[in-house]
Design a protein around this nucleic acid. Structure first.
Length: 864
RNA sequence: GCCCAGAUGGCGGAAUUGGUAGACGCGCUACGUUCAGGUCGUAGUGUCCUUAUGGACGUGGAGGUUCGAGUCCUCUUCUGGGCACCA
């Protein structure tokens, strides 16, 4: 009998056994019968070619859920595939001259072999890559169906242009004014682009996200903020005197504060407003002003510092309520064309931006809200009623003043009244505005899904007939000049018009790769069987990084609604992910040499007096604990860990210690600790290997019952912890349990049966975390079949409750003694035992007892 | 500026409905095993006072509710994340 567990020998052996048994293949709905279904999914990876620790943690978590569900009798779908389109493949093509497809499929092969070493319970039979023509062809068909339903359209638009990646970015993909991938400052360009009408679902996306109870609150909030609903009034200010020919009826504005209309002092247009642009054509000064506005960057710091800038157009509009009152019309740099109508009315007294602007250009400031909160109400301007006395705009609660028919009303009430009046006057109506913009999906890249349309001079935009799908990417492309290789290709875009047959051109833009990940989970559910899709969807548990809180998770929600509405998926709610868990990152200390180079963990060593570079012996400074990244060189290669300790140890470590939603710091000592624990567990089973036939009668001595209680309680606690995504707690319980079983080895033959029962349960509880080890241990104790196929252990409820319980006794809220009482003891009995407790007498002796609180099973508190 | 989440030993973190704070792991200390290192085993490890027994204090800070608060309420400080000239 070996004295140590050898993961290098055991792990491949058991993976082979699982493969032979085809253990992780999901059953068809028909075969599943009465079994409930569980669709467990982790965000599929981009095939970069290397697995990193973040992957290990992500997939280990999903695997815990999937294996646990399987043991609990669910029909589990746990598939894997590849998010395979994207820029890195094109960059590799440019740098190394390798074809993006070849590069991608090689990476997939390399990563898949790494994946397999982790022992994940994956159903590989459903594997695909999004760059498979089968997959993107289907995506093209969906695109055309969306187009049919008016969910896709083309328009000329100002877009975010990434000058490094040479492509357009969606709003969601611009972070702090920079491209989300390249980090380059984004430029504005006017291009004809394809859009998905995600705004069509804005209201539903917002309403439903609040109801996703098994999503993290944080993610729901982020999506709600991103969608950005605001209720308000859209109305028209009519001209006084001179009327611009193109906007004869007036200026359309949007406001959320119609209650402050009487405080209006000017109307402002965005520098990009059509009327502004038109006027700039004949006004050089205004044209120069627009250029000035465009110079201000979009970065956070720029906006912070940007002064308010204005340009008086000389035009005037009339106040809707106050006869004879005229308001000047300005162009103002703080008005965004992208929100509302690109024009506002300004009430400087109650909006800080308007206030700053009014001060700068000497425009009137008239307070119309009388503050209700104490601090603001005592301000000088409240008593004088003079806007000139204000230091800042007042935006708090209050009642309306200086406002004719609105006087004395509360703000919300005044809003309603003002909107009603404007509606009665025919000048506008109450509306809802969203921050969410339609999703621009055109990308000027090669390695993506071609947009399946044809441009014909006579027929216009013609969809590619479904029989001609997929529109395949050409293989013979070159990356030697900047721009889109599809555009440069000598023949690819030449095609006959499907309608008139004349020579026409293919669309050369490809779809944003976020399209690919917006429906892959539906494809996993079934390639083409709508009933099987309906059976599996929605995903019951989705696991991934929080960085996708808005982008991917919003697009996928849109896609399911669109697919539902074109009859492609039977998912009434349109919600793809019923449960979402966002896991934390794997971090590591960073190391820097004295001359400022980042060093890898393997290049440094710790001695008694600090950290030193291996080889040179130079001192090393230890920096912050950060997400593992190539640039900081603080990565740990999963392959090395698996080779040293085995996959189980790696899985165990990334799930220990930190709660799953928080970051976990990888440490060498922690990994070694996990490795030691593996051996310890194996030791517990090895000690039982010769005693597998001890019979089914558990021991009846007190010690045997106590051990059985420990085991049954542990199973129950682990079960609950897994369901609640508290893997670190489950692991803590397993530690305690293993210690108890280890200790019981001193207890003689009397405990053998209880130990044997505990070991059998333990193996099955270990399976979700360390499946190979569990299998080896199961084998040691002659378990039936494969442990990965075994059912979750049954718990004897009677063993979960203690017969007697230890109660702390407090005197005035401080613990002074303990008593042991029967579980069924009444309050009076407990009180009597407590009062007689000798250790207590010095605290209550000679004092009058005011009150005794007895909480059975919890505590006794004596108040003196 | 707005929104969200956090703050517990040397470190990561436990703690059902308010009911023995510090489970479990790492680290550290001592002892044993070992030629030695590692492994393994045993004991200890919040702070302070105390020979011990025992006691006082203790969950970012200040108040409050309660027989009893890490947990509930009010105020406040700090940290992390998200959004941001969104009318």
């Amino acid at each position: 009998m070996a004295s140590r567990y050898d993961p290098q020998a055991a792990e491949p052996k058991w993976r082979e056994a699982w493969a032979q048994a085809d253990l992780f293949k999901a059953s068809t709905p028909a075969d599943a019968g009465d079994m409930p279904k569980a669709y467990v999914l982790e965000m599929f990876p981009y095939p970069s070619g290397r697995l990193h620790m973040g992957h290990v943690r992500n997939y280990a978590m999903g695997d815990v859920v999937a294996r646990h569900k399987k043991a609990k009798g669910y029909n589990v779908l746990h598939p894997m595939g590849w998010d395979a389109f994207g820029m890195p493949a094109e960059n590799a093509a440019m740098e190394k001259g390798v074809h993006p497809g070849e590069w991608t499929y090689q990476n997939i092969a390399a990563m898949k072999s790494q994946f397999e070493k982790l022992g994940l319970s994956l159903d590989w039979s459903r594997e695909f890559a999004t760059c498979d023509p089968d997959y993107y062809g289907e995506q093209q068909r969906l695109f055309l169906k969306f187009m049919d339903q008016g969910l896709v359209y083309q328009k000329k638009a100002k877009v975010n242009w990434d000058p490094v990646d040479n492509t357009v970015l969606a709003n969601e993909q611009v972070i702090d004014g920079k491209g989300w991938r390249s980090g380059a400052p984004v430029e504005q360009r006017e291009l004809v682009q394809w859009f998905f009408r995600i705004t069509h679902y804005a209201e539903d996306l917002l309403d439903q996200v609040q109801k996703l109870e098994r999503w993290p609150e944080k993610v729901r909030t982020m999506q709600a903020n991103w969608i950005g609903r605001s209720e308000g009034l859209q109305m028209r200010f009519e001209w006084v005197g001179e009327k611009p020919t193109s906007h004869e009826s007036g200026v359309e504005i949007f406001t959320t504060r119609p209650d402050t209309l009487f405080g209006a002092s000017f109307v402002a247009l965005s520098p990009d407003h059509p009327l502004t642009i038109e006027m700039a054509e004949t006004n050089a000064e205004l044209d120069a002003f627009r250029a000035e506005c465009a110079k201000v960057g979009t970065s956070e710091a720029d906006i912070e510092k940007a002064p308010k800038m204005g340009f008086d157009t000389g035009l005037k509009v009339k106040h809707p309520f106050s006869d004879g009152v005229e308001l000047p019309v300005y162009i103002a740099n703080f008005v965004l064309m992208g929100y509302g109508t690109g024009a506002i009315f300004a009430c400087p007294a109650h909006d800080q931006r308007d206030f700053d602007f009014a001060r700068k250009y000497n425009l009137p400031i008239l307070p119309v809200v009388k503050p209700s909160d104490k601090d603001a109400a005592s301000a000088e301007w409240v008593s004088t009623g003079q806007g000139d006395d204000m230091d800042a705009a007042y935006t708090g609660p209050g009642s309306i003043m200086n406002s004719d028919f609105l006087d004395g009303r509360e703000i919300t009430e005044a809003k309603t009244l003002a909107i009603a009046k404007i509606e009665a006057m025919g000048l506008g109506s109450g509306t809802v505005n969203y921050r969410l913009r339609d999703w621009g999906v055109s990308r000027q890249r090669y390695w993506g899904c071609p947009i399946p349309v044809i441009h014909c001079d006579d027929c216009g935009i013609v969809p590619v007939p479904v029989k001609d799908l997929p529109v395949r990417l050409p293989d013979d492309v070159s990356f030697d000049k900047p721009g889109n290789p599809l555009d440069h290709h000598p023949t690819w875009k030449d095609v006959g018009c499907p309608e008139c047959g004349k020579a026409a051109r293919r669309e050369t833009d490809t779809l944003d790769t976020f399209n690919d990940s917006s429906w892959y989970f539906a494809r996993f559910a079934s390639v083409d069987d709508p009933e099987e899709r309906a059976y599996w969807l929605p995903v019951d548990q989705y696991v991934g990084g929080v960085e996708h809180a808005v982008l991917h998770l919003l697009y996928a929600r849109f896609f399911m609604r669109a697919m539902r509405d074109v009859g492609e998926v039977d998912l009434p709610s349109g919600e793809p992910f019923a449960g979402l868990f966002t896991q934390g990152m794997v971090t590591h200390e960073t190391y820097k040499s004295s001359d400022g180079r980042w060093l890898q963990p393997s290049e440094v060593e710790q001695r008694d007096d600090g950290w030193f570079e291996m080889g040179s012996g130079e001192p090393v400074s230890v920096g912050a604990i950060e997400k593992m990244s190539k640039s900081k060189k603080n990565t740990v290669d999963p392959d090395n860990i698996i080779a040293t300790f085995g996959a189980d140890t790696a899985r165990w470590f990334v799930l220990s210690d930190s709660p799953p939603e928080r970051d976990v710091e990888w440490t060498q000592s922690g990994a070694e600790g996990a490795g030691r624990f593996v051996q310890r567990v194996w030791g517990v089973f090895n000690a039982l290997a010769d005693h597998t036939n001890v019979g089914d009668t558990p021991g009846t001595t007190e010690a045997a019952t106590a051990l059985r209680r420990t085991s049954h309680k542990a199973v129950s606690a682990i079960d609950k912890a897994i369901e609640e995504f508290r893997f670190n707690s489950a692991i803590a319980t397993i530690h305690e349990w293993v210690s108890a079983l280890k200790k019981a080895e001193q207890g003689g033959d009397d405990l053998l049966s209880a130990r044997s029962e505990g070991a059998s349960m333990l193996a099955r509880c270990l399976t979700p975390f360390m499946p190979h080890l569990a299998e080896e241990c199961w084998d040691l104790i002659d378990g039936d079949g494969l442990c990965s196929a075994a059912a979750w252990p049954d718990v004897d409820a009677a063993l979960l409750v203690e017969d007697s319980v230890t109660l702390p006794i407090q005197v005035n809220g401080k613990r002074r003694a303990e008593i042991s009482v029967s579980k069924t003891a009444s309050k009076d009995e407990i009180e009597a035992i407590a009062m007689a407790e000798p250790a207590l007498q010095s605290f209550i002796d000679g004092k009058s007892i005011k009150k005794v609180i007895v909480v059975p099973g919890r505590i006794v508190n004596i108040v003196v």
